[in-house]
């Protein structure tokens, strides 16, 4: 790993630190790309290195929005393209073209796959009495995948430059995206009854039955009013009703 790539990778861990509604991750991506652009300052670039560097830094901080773990792919690819003297408009088009695929792939692979899968395994571990081992296992396993993905993305972007689309079609990546969905569904499905049992362990008699009935009713409500009613609102509403009932039923 070159020092510049190392710096860029470290900065990628903060890529959403200055997230805003205008440039989205733009500023963070610019900060992560900057170490890879420093070579452009050298006089070897036709003597106008300073101007090339500043123009590239300015472009790197423009609007960008994708999955944070895969931003490195765009960072590496754009930086490589800048080094290869690709016309600015083409670099901008590359960044814009990568937003959608990187967002979609990352959401499927991580937010809707790897993360809930690992979280469900942690829930199962805790529910079965694994305690701290389940938590430490979750952090270790999840982050092994997380860090590997960030590192792969940056390296693939830096290696492929303008041809980075090829990296996205890697069979391993496609296979992982295809497998993570069913694995997540299976694990979370198994975690739900075990977590329910773990949480209702302290209840006895009528309260156990009440949990089953209210949970079923709450689920039906959330399903029927999906898009309008959230888990948070349902929770607050049920707690308000329970507080009211507690006041009346003494």
């Amino acid at each position: 790993m070159t020092p510049a790539l190392g710096k860029s990778l470290l900065r990628l861990f903060t890529v959403q630190g200055s997230y805003d509604y205008e440039r989205m991750q733009g500023i963070g991506v610019g900060v992560a790309e900057e170490p890879l652009l420093r070579d452009l300052r050298a006089a070897a670039n036709g003597g106008g290195g300073g101007a090339a560097y500043r123009a590239a830094v300015a472009r790197s901080a423009h609007f960008f929005n994708a999955h944070p773990y895969l931003c490195g792919l765009a960072v590496g690819a754009a930086a490589r393209a800048e080094h290869e003297g690709v016309p600015p408009a083409q670099v901008e088009r590359l960044r814009a073209a990568l937003c959608g695929p990187l967002g979609s792939l990352g959401d499927r692979l991580v937010w809707a796959g790897w993360l809930p899968l690992m979280s469900a395994l942690a829930l199962i571990g805790v529910a079965l009495g694994g305690g701290w081992r389940a938590i430490i296992g979750f952090l270790a396993l999840y982050n092994a995948g997380h860090v590997a993905l960030r590192w792969w993305a940056l390296r693939a972007g830096w290696a492929h430059g303008m041809g980075v689309a090829a990296a996205l079609h890697q069979p391993v990546l496609q296979r992982a995206a295809a497998l993570s969905g069913p694995a997540m569904a299976l694990a979370v499905g198994a975690a739900l009854p075990l977590a329910a049992q773990y949480l209702s362990g302290a209840f006895t008699g009528w309260s156990r039955g009440a949990v089953a009935v209210v949970a079923a009713g709450g689920f039906a409500l959330l399903w029927w009013r999906r898009g309008k009613l959230t888990g948070l609102r349902l929770g607050l509403a049920l707690l308000a009703v329970a507080a009211l009932a507690a006041g009346l039923w003494r």
């Binding site: 977590a195 209840f203 309260s207 009440a210 689920f219 399903w223 888990g231 707690l239 009932a245």
Partner: peptide
């Protein structure tokens, strides 16, 4: 009994939210 009611509401909402969100 009031405390139990609050607990029932919280646990039920959590299970319902988890199941609906996953589905």
């Amino acid at each position: 009994r009031g405390v139990t009611l609050l607990d029932v509401a919280a646990v039920s909402a959590g299970i319902a939210a988890g199941a609906a969100g996953t589905l």
